[in-house]
Amino acid sequence: MSALAAAPLLARYAESLFWMARYLERVENLARVIDVTQTFESPGRPAQAWESVVRINADEIPFRDRYGPPAPETVRRFYLLDADNPTSIPAAVSAARRNARTLRPLISTEMWRQINEFHGWVTALSEDDIAPDRLSALCTRIKEAVQLQTGITEGTFFRDQGWLFLELGRQIERADQTTRLLDIKYHLLLPSVADVGSALDLSQWHALLRAAAGYHAYRRVHPRGLTPASVADFLLLNDAFPRSTLLCLRRAEGMLDSLRQRYGLNVARPAERLEEVRAGLEERSIERIIAGGLHEFLDWVQRMLIAVSAEIGNAFFRDWRPDTPSL
């Protein structure tokens, strides 16, 4: 092993890298979801689209306890301003910054500075900033702040084990978030099956693709037409789109593989779990998935990813004791 490969990485640092990346990815995706939800608002049923945001984040109970039945204003506040809501953007940015603070000895000054400034800005947002006419611009800015961090990281962060843990977190979270983005549409469709295939429905599938930054990529694969099944296929199973769940899982497997090959880590258990969920995607066509219930499938992927994270935690973050101590 080279000197670099032999350099140890504190388990606590690895865990913080993994979670910092996850929180940031979560922030970006939540901004995407909120942005697209506004375009889903339909006359007469404004609350419905926002309600589904609460549902895909599994926040029904905490939301109701704080704000009662979902209304557009309160859902926006819950996710954009409410630092006491652990799934809000300010809370996730604070969590990312807390991890970054732990990681300051490791990450570049430029990474820290940007996340620190981002945090200062996002935690100072007020009611005015989330008004409907400013919401899309705000979501764009939040999204770009995360993308800026991603770019700074790409350009400045040292490529050792730490990088692999960071990327592992990012890919797993992204895989998960794409299933949630898709699920928002599922919930929206469910109450009125009659709308399926209507003009309204198709424009919403367009919006969904745009929210995932996938519209033009989708068009390259499908120049004509747009069906819900082909959008779901693209977001879940495409092997070149960077936010497709399958691609993210393959990349996460690649990270584990590098951790094993280059750094000698024992990745067997998390790799096994990851392979299971990846194979679950690969061996099914979108038609089969939809026939079996899209929501149920997405739910399965999400539960499997939680299991993968737990195995990663056990293997590298908490169960530090190796079989034979290297004295």
């Binding site: 388990a11 000895p105 084990q161 843990f165 880590l265 590298f316 101590p325």
Partner: peptide
């Protein structure tokens, strides 16, 4: 060098180790 907290270190047989992704490291 790594910045460690108390919980990152462990003592076994009068030797000090830090908890890393690969186990205990002297």
């Amino acid at each position: 060098v790594p910045l460690v907290e108390g919980a990152d270190l462990a003592v076994e047989n009068d030797r000090v180790f830090m908890r890393t992704t690969r186990g205990l490291s002297p």
